[in-house]
Amino acid sequence: MKLLYKGKTKDVYQLEDGNYILKFKDDMTGTDGKFDPGANTVGLTIDGAGKSSLKLTKMFFEILEEKNIPTHFIDANIEEATMTVKPAAMFGNGLEVICRYKAVGSFLRRYGMYAKEGQDLDAFVEVTLKDDQRGDPPISEDALHMLNIVTREEYAKLKDLTVKISNIVKEELAKKNLELYDIKLEFGKVNGEIVLIDEISGGNMRVYKDGKYIEPLLLEKLLLQ
Rank of each mutant, 00 (worst) to 15 (best):
M1F: 12
K2T: 14
L3S: 09
Y5P: 09
Y5T: 10
K10L: 04
K10V: 01
K10T: 00
E16R: 15
D17I: 10
N19W: 06
L22T: 04
T31A: 15
T31S: 15
K34T: 14
D36N: 11
P37I: 09
A39F: 12
T41I: 12
T41D: 13
V42E: 00
V42R: 02
L44K: 10
T45K: 11
I46R: 07
I46K: 11
D47K: 15
D47A: 15
A49D: 06
G50Q: 05
K51I: 03
S52L: 08
L54H: 05
K55A: 06
K58C: 03
M59T: 04
M59A: 11
F61D: 03
L64I: 08
E65D: 15
E65S: 08
E66N: 14
E66W: 02
N68G: 13
I69N: 06
P70F: 07
F73L: 05
F73R: 06
I74C: 03
A76N: 10
A76K: 15
A76L: 14
I78C: 05
T82L: 07
A88L: 04
A88Q: 11
A89P: 01
F91E: 10
G92S: 05
G94M: 05
C99K: 00
C99V: 14
Y101I: 01
Y101C: 01
K102R: 13
A103F: 00
V104H: 06
G105A: 07
S106Q: 05
Y111W: 13
E117Y: 07
E117T: 10
D122T: 04
V125R: 13
V127C: 04
L129P: 09
L129C: 00
K130F: 01
I139P: 08
I139F: 02
S140W: 07
L144Y: 00
L147V: 09
I149L: 08
T151L: 03
E154R: 04
A156L: 08
K157Y: 02
K157V: 00
I165F: 02
I165S: 09
I168G: 03
I168T: 12
V169C: 14
E171K: 09
E171C: 14
E172H: 08
L173Q: 05
N177Y: 12
E179M: 10
F187C: 11
F187P: 11
N191S: 15
I194N: 09
V195P: 01
I197A: 01
D198N: 06
G203D: 14
N204T: 06
R206Y: 04
D210L: 14
D210T: 08
D210F: 09
D210Y: 07
K212C: 10
I214E: 07
E215T: 14
L217N: 11
L219F: 02
L219T: 00
L222N: 04
L223A: 05
L224R: 13
